[in-house]
Design a protein around this nucleic acid. Sequence first.
DNA 1: AGCCCTTACGCAATCGTTTGCATAGCCTGA
DNA 2: TCAGGCTATGCAAACGATTGCGTAAGGGCT
Lengths: 350, 350
Amino acid sequence: MRKQVTLKDIAAAAGVHVSTVSRALDPVTATTLSDEVVAQIRSAATAMGYRRNRIASSLRTQQSKTVGVVLPDISNWIFPPMVRGIEKVLEEAGYAAFFVNTDNLVAREERLLSALLERGVDGILHAAVLRDSPALAALAAEGLPVLTLNRRVDPSRIPCVINDENAGIQMMVTHLVEAGHSQIAAISGPQALSTGMMRQQALLTTLAGMGLRQPACSHVEANGFSEEEGSRCCAELFDRGNHFTAILCANDRLALGALSELRARGLSCPDDVSLTGYNDMPYLDWIAPGLTTVRIEQAEAGRVAAELMLQMLNGAEVPQETVMPVTMIRRGSVTPPRRLRELQASRNPV
Amino acid sequence: MRKQVTLKDIAAAAGVHVSTVSRALDPVTATTLSDEVVAQIRSAATAMGYRRNRIASSLRTQQSKTVGVVLPDISNWIFPPMVRGIEKVLEEAGYAAFFVNTDNLVAREERLLSALLERGVDGILHAAVLRDSPALAALAAEGLPVLTLNRRVDPSRIPCVINDENAGIQMMVTHLVEAGHSQIAAISGPQALSTGMMRQQALLTTLAGMGLRQPACSHVEANGFSEEEGSRCCAELFDRGNHFTAILCANDRLALGALSELRARGLSCPDDVSLTGYNDMPYLDWIAPGLTTVRIEQAEAGRVAAELMLQMLNGAEVPQETVMPVTMIRRGSVTPPRRLRELQASRNPV
DNA sequence: AGCCCTTACGCAATCGTTTGCATAGCCTGA
DNA sequence: TCAGGCTATGCAAACGATTGCGTAAGGGCT
């Protein structure tokens, strides 16, 4: 911070009191002043290159016009669009955002939360929350505006913006079944995250609803949403010796990991095994054979979350749960199982 | 911001003056106090859940322990790793960062810069700078620590951390030439950005140094580093009717755009045209045929830049220019030109 | 003309920390 | 014993903006 021109300087230049300057510069309080004074002060201010010191302002008003945004890891492709959505809305409302990454590490998260609070954030938008998050719940209980995004604290009264995991998983399962798959293996996400949990639940209810059974032995739980875990889990599915013609993965990165494991085993997707993902990461359509997946609207979710946050900051009530719609993206990674294809081919020879 | 426990509260509880509490809580000034008092105050502070109000602190000390990080667009894949590198270093030093995205829009950049300054950032790390950036130069001249990353203000005394564009381009050209290409087209980046400019310069000097000539007509300048521009420029290369067997692209996204245009024209990479990129975006190896490119170390560059920024914040001098090394990543998008391959095949029949 | 109300602005306290200076007490040394 | 010095702490003024309250001037009304 360097020496800057303050209200006092402008007051001296304009021959008025600093409080008058303060009022002249705020459109709403300026109405109590005479037009000439306001005009004079404003022109003096711009002439002198005045820039409001928000720190002093924050101290006095007890609000920093700042929110903290907590992410697991911005390097994860699904977050940048979300961040842009958040930033856009907040910036237009005069808010700035501190972005931090927890790497899903509890200790790190606590440190970062603390840093955010020291800096007087007016609210926290949390996209990296664990299902069980007492610290955050405590903050919310104290009256700090808190909203979770993509995930939720479970159970709690913290408002959240999440995606329609049920619909998404149901689409994928239906799509696989309609393609003729009846032996569907699954790689699910970490159950400590609400997304992992909810998608897994959705899978079970969907299968049950369709009268299918997914044997426990063809279901592996990943320890994280990464390619490595996807490969590991895929390998484990094969090692168990169960037969399956498709793998439903809890997100795209797990699916990519599975894809590379398939290739490593000399198998082809979709010829030997169909694969589905979740999230629709950017550039996914560039990767052959094109992963069939569920698109979640990250940027839109970010915008919605930021708008809800603004409402909370204004003291308004917001819905406990906002569910964003998802859509299915069909690409090349799902085809009918080989058996069916061959059957079809023999019936309709070329 | 909610009611919080202040130094005054602790002072009252401990029966001392608030200045004493302030001193007790700062490890360095605490040495002037008696050990018992310090211990007593500290325990009272933690017992009462004291959290330092950095806003008040900033106002008094005139430094916010905050830096502004200006990006073109966090959705661009090369930035998230950089952001993580920056965040890691700054956070360890007790700094927090405001991240903003300019979308390469001058008006937006000015608004954002202004917002950062109002919030009293101690320094600015700028990765979205145009070659000509008077506003930023002015800030730097006023004594605000400013450092540019990935790009530079040209000319100016603003320190920068950039990549070794010369080496990178030279590697790509050499690789193409060694593969047998002599008719190399180029899609260069926007010349308003130092990266676009420097890579273009590097291309010309490299070609000249090798005794090759790149005719102006097989060189197209993109208006932005995007897939769309890559496609457009690739199309323009064909429309001009010049013959070429390889396209050197100023970054990966341009190369991807070119790739899709090739496919749209029924051509194959690398069978018909070889392609090179720049940056080595994540997941690029998943995209067939695998783009041969230049890897730049984003995370490392972010770390280095943040450390230089910390030095500047401490009043130290830093080098005017820090050049990060780059490495070549060979994948499948470059092969000898068809003519050579056929020649080879006829000589060594399988 | 006198009263009151409004208008337009000044006054001063306040937000929570930091820090230069003042001071009270104690110790040391002559 | 007393000057002088040191130690440990208190005092109060900042930092810059905001805002409740006070008040002078002016105008309208009777």
